[in-house]
Amino acid sequence: MSNNSSHITEYKVLGRILLILMFFTFATISVTSFNLASFTVTVALLIAGIKGYFVLSYFMHLKYENLLLRILVGMIFVLFALIVLITFIDYSYR
């Protein structure tokens, strides 16, 4: 069965990922407690994006999946970003 070939992520790796995620959680709390004006959103989203990357690639094993699936996941985020961007073409120029 195809499962036999699938990748096994070691406990140690998973633990390390959790530490990284926790680090970024505290980072995002401390960064957003300063008022960086419009940069706050950017920074918060950037950090959330990094955390999302770790969850997707290690917890969800995307790093070890085939290329097609990885491309598809990327496309979903691109599609969503495009939709948001285009909606803002309306709202930013009203």
Partner: peptide
């Protein structure tokens, strides 16, 4: 086809830029 939805909304009060886009 995902990116053209606004052509149903030309008269909704959408911004000029969105309309030509």
């Amino acid at each position: 086809g995902f990116l053209v939805w606004g052509h149903h909304m030309y008269t909704s009060g959408m911004s000029e830029n969105a309309r030509w886009f």
